[in-house]
Each structure stands twice: as structure tokens, then as C-alpha cells.
Design a protein around this nucleic acid. Structure first.
Length: 231
DNA sequence: CACCAGGCAAGTA
DNA sequence: TACTTGCATGGT
């Protein structure tokens, strides 16, 4: 059966709707091979810098850190917070984010001797709790680190994920983070490559067709929105 | 010009 | 517990 028809007929049944949504997006975009970064540490820096911020601005900041050759735990540890802040300025909230990057680096050195491999050797659930205890790391940032830097099977929920599911009547407007994450993790096999690709598909679709001001025209999901469905 | 972008924490009642 | 506010740059 056509995944589109399945999704349209049962948007409220995640067991059929979530795999159908994936099939439709994957057929349209193909493999995205995601998180635009060259190393796990760059993923982590990007995850913090992109909080409520356009990715384009994050790229400027990351480029500056590369230009200054400070994109490593040790170099950021040895940097003054003020200098770090100036270099990441294009990412916005730059004083706040400099503090948050420093907080993560302190955490990394205090618990794992500055070594990401040691950090990721921690059991995933324990590591998630530990990351959430760092000031400036919330659920989405923690899960992005676990999935995209650590390749752990943890589903990342973000604004696009929620917006797309809302627009298609799959969740209520007020669904919270654990609820959304629980949906994906209960009804899909716990495989990091699948979670990686699924989230990438949602973000890519969201950026292209589903911003806060809807730009639905041409969206591969557009035919799935039923009559009268809020958008 | 106004509005938006891959959140999070701290403050208030 | 349930809201509200601060954080800030750059693109549309």
C-alpha cells in the first residue's frame, strides 16, 4: 500500500504513520548522510551553537574557530571565554554560548580527561543524564551529541520534527519532548543510522518546505494533508 | 521595517 | 507547577 495513503488514513497511529512518513521522505530525498561536521567534536560545538539559531550563522562561527585553529577540547579549554565569545559572535547569543561551550569542556575534562572516546564509552542512559546536568545542554543538544557525535540510537526531536508532525495531525500542538521522542523510539527499531537519517529527512524537509511561515508548495508530504487539516 | 532561526535556564506567581 | 523573559546575530 502507498505509504502516503497509510499516513493520510491513520495519522494518529504512530505504528503505521511513522514508518510511512519515513518511507515517503526517504523515497523523495534519498540518503542525506547527515550532520554537517567533520568530527565528533565539531558536531558537539555545532549542537551548542545552533540552539535557536539559523545554521548559516553557526557555519560562520565554526569557520572562524577552524581559521583560528582552536576547534579541539584542549584549545578551547585554554582559551579565555571572552576571546571564544568574539570568534563565535556570528552564531548569536555569543556570550551565553561561549559560557556553554566552556561548561561542556570543563565537564569533559573533569569526568573523562578531555577524551570524547572515554565519554562515549559510558552507558548511553547514564551519559545522557550526565550531559543534561551540564549548564546549557538540554534534551535536544544532549540527544544530538549522543546520536550524531556518539552514534548512539537516540532519537533527536527538534522544532522541525514537532512542526511537521503537528501539521500532519500526528501529535497535538502541546506535545512535549519526551512524548515525541517516545513515539519514535517505541515504534521504530533502535538503530542509530535509521534515527540519523530520519531526523535528517525531517530537518531537510522542514528547512525547504515547512518554516514557521508555511511554504508547503512542492513539499513531498503536501498531498498527505487532509481537508481541513491545520497548517 | 518586522519576523524568523535545528534551545535553554532563570525568574516570577 | 505553569508561564514569562533574556540571550543576539544575520537572512528574508
Amino acid at each position: 500500500m502507498d505509504p502516503g495513503a497509510v499516513l493520510l488514513s491513520r495519522p494518529d497511529n504512530p505504528e503505521v504513520a511513522l514508518p510511512a512518513l519515513y518511507e515517503r521522505l526517504h523515497a523523495y530525498w534519498g540518503n542525506l548522510g547527515w550532520w554537517p561536521a567533520e568530527s565528533p567534536f565539531e558536531v558537539i560545538v555545532g549542537a551548542i551553537l545552533t540552539q535557536n539559531t539559523a545554521w548559516q550563522n553557526v557555519e560562520k562561527a565554526v569557520t572562524a574557530l577552524k581559521r583560528e585553529a582552536v576547534l579541539s577540547p584542549a584549545r578551547i579549554r585554554d582559551l579565555s571565554e571572552d576571546r571564544l565569545a568574539e570568534w563565535i559572535r556570528p552564531a548569536g547569543y555569543y556570550r551565553l554560548k561561549a559560557r556553554r561551550l566552556k561548561a561542556f569542556i570543563r565537564f569533559l575534562y573533569e569526568r573523562y580527561a578531555g577524551n570524547l572516546d572515554r565519554m562515549f564509552a559510558q552507558p548511553t542512559e547514564r551519559l545522557r543524564e550526565a550531559l543534561l546536568s551540564v549548564n546549557g545542554i538540554g534534551p535536544e543538544t544532549a540527544d544530538s551529541i549522543l546520536l550524531y557525535a556518539g552514534e548512539k540510537p537516540v532519537f533527536v526531536v527538534d522544532a522541525y520534527t514537532k512542526r511537521i508532525l503537528c501539521r500532519h495531525g500526528m501529535i497535538p500542538e502541546d506535545a512535549d519532548y519526551p512524548t515525541l521522542q517516545g513515539l519514535f523510539m517505541r515504534y521504530l527499531p533502535a538503530e542509530a543510522p535509521l534515527f540519523n537519517q530520519y531526523h535528517a529527512l525531517l530537518v531537510h524537509t522542514g528547512k525547504t518546505f515547512c518554516r514557521k511561515k508555511p511554504l508547503c508548495a512542492g513539499c513531498p508530504l503536501e498531498p498527505l494533508v487532509g481537508p481541513g487539516e491545520a497548517r
